[in-house]
Simulated assay, not measured.
Amino acid sequence: MAVLVQEIISADYAFVIHTTNPSTGDSSQIYAEVVKGLGETLVGAYPGRALSFICQKNDLNSPKLLGYPSKPIGLFIRRSIIFRSDSNGEDLEGYAGAGLYDSVPMDEEEKVVLDYTNDPLIIDPNFRNSILCSIAKVGNEIEQLYCSPQDIEGVIKAGKIFVVQTRPQM
């Protein structure tokens, strides 16, 4: 087993993209979820739901909002690094992303009680549409690059998208 040492981007938002809708198996749809702060509240066992949406691959400029977020806690961190297993052996058979090993940040994350009343992702439809379209387009491009459905994790910082991981979608 190897250990991957990776920079943590102090994210405004984090997302997970499935380039085939995992609920329906529809390969013409991208399904994604977005949370405030670091992605651990999305991929970990944190309560509440993420903002979720689908987008048709033939119309990446028209995301359809499925649900608003209700996660009460966001995780935030200053610039730091994280130590993660870099082994496919960490995955449980047939469950991409269901790792057996923890990722460990060098510095402790700050837990923040979230207030969505002033969040532009919630109150500004133009901002929301821009972010969701950008996420869908990134997912579509990565799927085309790898020629297979992908499970993608990334973050948004100051309006820029950073992809931190992609793997074949199971």
Score class of each variant (00 low, 15 high):
V5K: 09
Q6N: 10
A11F: 03
D12T: 08
V16I: 14
T19S: 11
P22W: 06
P22D: 06
S23M: 13
T24M: 06
G25C: 05
G25Q: 03
S27A: 12
Y31L: 07
Y31R: 04
Y31A: 04
A32T: 02
V34Y: 01
V34E: 03
V35Q: 01
K36N: 06
L42Q: 08
L42I: 11
V43A: 13
V43H: 13
G44Y: 12
A45M: 12
Y46N: 12
Y46H: 14
R49H: 10
I54A: 06
C55Q: 07
K57I: 06
L60H: 03
L60P: 02
K64L: 13
K64F: 07
K64E: 14
L65K: 07
G74V: 05
L75K: 09
I77L: 13
S80W: 10
I81Y: 15
F83L: 15
S85C: 13
L92A: 10
L92S: 09
E93W: 08
G94S: 07
A96E: 14
A96Y: 09
D102I: 02
V104R: 13
P105W: 07
D107A: 13
E108K: 14
E108V: 08
E108G: 11
K111S: 13
K111R: 14
V113A: 14
L114S: 04
Y116N: 01
Y116C: 01
Y116G: 02
T117S: 15
T117M: 04
P120I: 07
I122G: 02
I122L: 04
I122H: 03
I122N: 01
I123G: 06
I123E: 05
P125R: 12
P125K: 14
N126A: 13
L132H: 07
C133N: 08
I135T: 03
G139T: 05
E143Q: 03
L145P: 00
Y146G: 00
S148N: 12
S148L: 12
Q150M: 09
Q150S: 02
I152D: 00
E153G: 00
E153I: 03
G154R: 00
V155T: 08
I161V: 13
V163K: 02
Q165V: 04
Q165R: 05
R167A: 05
P168S: 15
M170K: 12
